[in-house]
């Protein structure tokens, strides 16, 4: 077996610290699967993130559109921001991750992740612009598709929904093509 020098040599100490606190991905998958039993059997609501997030975005539109403008919008009229299970779940996700990162002592500030800097250098501005644009595109896409990796990818696929399997496969194909283009010929320090 070839010595795994490539990535280990270029990954930061922080990356390795993160990896130490990890659990077996299959067990994590089982955990999320079991969690979805409770989501269906107790909450009567599939696990999801992007519906609550897009409802929350109405707050950002308030200063521009005013409260009447937001209230008149057909999308937010259909998905108003309220303290429903979806929003509480979203908030719980943040604090769960915070709890986990504090217990495992892996909290660290990260501006430019290692895979990015290997290909595009250490410029913080460049990374933040890409992250912002990516965020805009991913949420627009999630709402157009009707769900994200949680709502479609996991909750929808496990119900064998045609829409969700279409989402899952198309999203993966599109991501693979995007990664091919974005990371082409620019292996940088990794080579």
């Amino acid at each position: 077996m070839k010595a795994p020098t490539n990535q280990t040599a270029t990954s930061s100490a922080g990356d390795r610290a993160d990896a130490r606190g990890r659990w077996n991905p299959y067990l994590v998958g089982i955990g999320i699967g079991v969690l979805s039993w409770f989501a269906f059997g107790v909450l009567d609501e599939p696990l999801g993130i992007s519906t609550a997030l897009s409802s929350a975005s109405s707050v950002c539109a308030l200063p521009i559109l005013g409260s009447d403008g937001v209230a008149d919008n057909a999308y937010w009229a259909k998905n108003p921001l309220k303290w429903n299970g979806g929003l509480l779940f979203l908030i719980g996700t943040f604090f769960g991750s915070l709890l986990s990162v504090l217990v495992s002592r892996t909290f660290r500030w990260e501006k430019v992740p290692s895979t990015w800097s290997q290909h595009f250098g250490g410029s913080t501005a460049k990374r933040l612009v890409a992250a912002f644009l990516g965020g805009v595109i991913i949420m627009f896409g999630a709402r157009m598709a009707g769900g994200c990796t949680s709502g479609h990818g996991i909750s929808g696929s496990l119900q064998l929904a045609l829409s969700s399997w279409t989402f899952f496969l198309t999203m993966f194909a599109s991501g693979i093509v995007t990664a091919l283009i974005l990371f082409r010929n620019r292996s940088g320090a990794a080579k």
């Binding site: 993130i49 992250a131 595109i137 991913i138 896409g141």
Partner: peptide, 28 residues
């Protein structure tokens, strides 16, 4: 669904997270 998922894939590679993992990553 197809157009949205295609956009989603582009956004996920640019952002490096999906909506749920992005929220989790903020806390890290």
């Amino acid at each position: 669904v197809a157009l949205g998922a295609a956009l989603f894939g582009v956004g996920m590679v640019l952002y490096g997270y999906c909506p749920g993992t992005g929220v989790a990553a903020m806390a890290t």
